[in-house]
Design a protein around this nucleic acid. Sequence first.
DNA 1: CAGTAATTTCAATGATTCATGAGTAGTTGA
DNA 2: TCAACTACTCATGAATCATTGAAATTACTG
Lengths: 130, 130
Amino acid sequence: MDRGKALTALQALAHQTRLDLVHLLMPHGQDGLPAGQIGLALGMTASRLSFHLAALEQAGLLRSRKQSRNVFYTVDTDGMGGTIGYLLNTCCHADPSVKACCQTTAMPARKAASKTKPHPKIWPDDTGPG
Amino acid sequence: MDRGKALTALQALAHQTRLDLVHLLMPHGQDGLPAGQIGLALGMTASRLSFHLAALEQAGLLRSRKQSRNVFYTVDTDGMGGTIGYLLNTCCHADPSVKACCQTTAMPARKAASKTKPHPKIWPDDTGPG
DNA sequence: CAGTAATTTCAATGATTCATGAGTAGTTGA
DNA sequence: TCAACTACTCATGAATCATTGAAATTACTG
């Protein structure tokens, strides 16, 4: 991950809506979610959703695949990991005090997303996207 | 690290100049660097520097302490770690594929910064702040 | 106290970003 | 082909952000 790409990715992530998008899509793994369902889950207009999805995809943080009428979006874990790794290892020189943030228990392997079930909880402190 | 603080920190980091600042200050540990020397190292005007330093400090990523005429800036490793940890653990649900970015060799403990010696190299690919 | 140095604050300007609503394009099935 | 559905693009205006230079603030020095 070079400097320019990392900066683009950070700019993409520095927005509440786009953070919400990643958080929502992450548990759905490589199945992802269609745009319509994402918009429904986060309550945003189609054009606004499209704008933010495109920003994340262009930044290398999301991938999309077309499937009949729908476009499914998934998180690009390489892009996300690369961005975080850039902050951690390049920008912070892999400083041990900073790296302590990695020492949390990993989640068990995510289960394959069921197509219809909505995401159970949006945020730990679910105060809505505002 | 709550959602609002993480977002503020990400917005602060989503800028080339401020990424440069963190990268420059990190190896200087708790000694830090005075603003004047930072401005010299990165070649920026005083007011511009002050603006970006303030943004980082307000976001909880930098700390400052006054020492006679100078203001020394240091990286707040808790803030940096908290921000990265938020991305990794909250936003990405500690997904193993993403967490792989942490699996790099840690640097040896940084040495205490000497007061006068300039930072040896700004970036791995030192193309300047532009 | 006058002069100098280190930083910050302020106002003005130009650039960028974001939300909105309307319009467009591709897909599906009757 | 037509209507319904899904998603994207575009133009607009409001809001925010970044840079600059000047002025103000605080702290040393002679």
